[in-house]
Design a protein around this nucleic acid. Sequence first.
DNA 1: CAGTTCACGATTGTTAACAATCTTTGTCAA
DNA 2: TTGACAAAGATTGTTAACAATCGTGAACTG
Lengths: 207, 207
Amino acid sequence: MEQRLAPNTKLNEARLCETFNVGRMRVRRALLLLSSQGIIKLHSNRGAYIACPNKSEASDVFAARMLIEPPLVRQLAQKSGDFDLTILTEHIALENIAREKKERTEIIRLSGEFHTKLAQATGNKFILRMMRELVTRTSLIVGLFGSSENASCPDDEHSNILKAIQSQNPKLAEELLISHLNHIQSGLDMETRQKPQDDLATILGSD
Amino acid sequence: MEQRLAPNTKLNEARLCETFNVGRMRVRRALLLLSSQGIIKLHSNRGAYIACPNKSEASDVFAARMLIEPPLVRQLAQKSGDFDLTILTEHIALENIAREKKERTEIIRLSGEFHTKLAQATGNKFILRMMRELVTRTSLIVGLFGSSENASCPDDEHSNILKAIQSQNPKLAEELLISHLNHIQSGLDMETRQKPQDDLATILGSD
DNA sequence: CAGTTCACGATTGTTAACAATCTTTGTCAA
DNA sequence: TTGACAAAGATTGTTAACAATCGTGAACTG
């Protein structure tokens, strides 16, 4: 989610055991769950690799988000009184702080998390889960196809979307979100892949 | 999915090993995956149980479907030329056959599968996966709260939805689907739970 | 007789050794 | 030098034994 592990990076079981000080069972359970979410791919007898979405899968993710998120924000805006929007206002504040401090990985993480929290605001567990998956996959895709500067969402689009929701303007909120998703997608270069990567231990070792 | 296992049924590991002639590892992997999809619940040190959705979770599932499916069929109807609808026409045929033969479990399975195939028709893997999960959960819910006669979807609503899609009438398709979902939901009695159940082996043994 | 405690049995969680598979490296020959 | 082949090493998959936990029922006490 923070793009510290590039697609196709191999996740060695023994390495992970040492890194996190757990037995192989835990590691394998985690890998299985991650693969069920499409975050990694398990190749039989060959190990686990960070998923490397192709063009088709990438457009599937965006198509799915285009299907789900617009009705979602519309619903939030329509009955904004029914929902708890404080998570969202607090989140915008966090994003601003991170942007001031220029904490790159934090900005990336929060950019995705905003969309997750939109789903969270509905109070619907399933919508939240679906959104989590879609956002995670989007992170992977942006890491693969995105140019480095716009890896995060454009500066104040999140804030504007939230304002539209708060002012109970469903139409505007929906439009802003659609163009926001379009911005993200158009910032990608689907032809050229970004740098590959390795040396797993040093990356995860910082925890 | 066929409602052969009632909610809260315990899934004993040793039993499953015998039933399917596999080692414990396979069984535990399967249970972990099923729990990640919310089909079963894993209680620490106490085992796996078929999920037993409460009222809140049930309404979450229907709310999620209400959010996703209407835009989905609208999209199918708008560009029905872009999609392969043969799966759906063939499916309707299967449903009719099963209904003639009065094969109850088959009807239930196919009723859910229609909605899955709507998602499949878009060709979008993620939408398909989400729909699969939602349909599965719906099966559980119908099994729990549904009166026995309308456990399946009303007779020709699926057929009408498909016709609306084929005739490229997005508005009608969306309306039909919404009222279809409403029919399913209103057929539920959220207060009284249906029969519990046990004896796992005989149920799964038929395979 | 009701309620509590304890111990046993059953079931799940974990570990470690073993088996199977793949990758790599080294050797040989063309 | 390049290719194929073989053996060694590394990594994943599986199995079985062990440890920990929980539920149940019997025994005991008030």
